[in-house]
């Protein structure tokens, strides 16, 4: 199946129309080239916009992770203090262990009060939380 795009039309038109219409064909080529340039520019713009969006998405992720870490920090500090009393060299090894997705979602959800922030967290983890 042939895709009927602008480039195909240009390669065929001079042959079909002959010498009289060569000026018109040239004009058409110029127009099409300009259109292509415009389209590629638009593509670039869209790509850069997508990059910005993904960066923003990443920012939200970072915020959520920071929130969770902030929430977990006091409890881990308490744990490490307790451990330090009994064994000073023993660091809090459980801190870096990745918790499951649901636990993260719930922890993050509970750590923030505003509905807007909670909505963000629900979007990030892809779950719905009903209290």
């Amino acid at each position: 199946m042939q895709i009927n795009n602008a480039a195909n039309n240009i390669s065929q038109t001079p042959i079909v129309l002959g010498n009289n219409s060569s000026v018109q064909a040239l004009e058409q080529i110029t127009r099409v080239t300009a259109r292509e340039n415009l389209a590629s520019e638009e593509n670039k713009n869209q790509q850069s916009q997508a990059d910005i969006n993904s960066r923003q998405r990443l920012d939200i992720d970072d915020q959520a992770i920071a929130l969770i870490e902030r929430e977990q920090l006091p409890s881990s500090n308490v744990n490490s203090n307790r451990q330090a009393n009994s064994q000073q060299n023993n660091s809090n090894s459980g801190y870096d262990a990745p918790p499951s997705q649901n636990q993260l979602a719930v922890a993050a959800y509970q750590s923030v009060g505003s509905i807007a922030q909670r909505d963000n967290i629900e979007q990030i983890f892809g779950v719905d939380l009903f209290a």
């Binding site: 649901n102 979602a105 719930v106 509970q110 892809g126 779950v127 719905d128 939380l129 009903f130 209290a131």
Partner: peptide, 14 residues
């Protein structure tokens, strides 16, 4: 207090 974590379904009905 309580929390129910769900995925999918009608948010309105839930």
């Amino acid at each position: 207090a309580g929390l129910c974590t769900t995925r999918g379904g009608s948010s309105f009905v839930i």
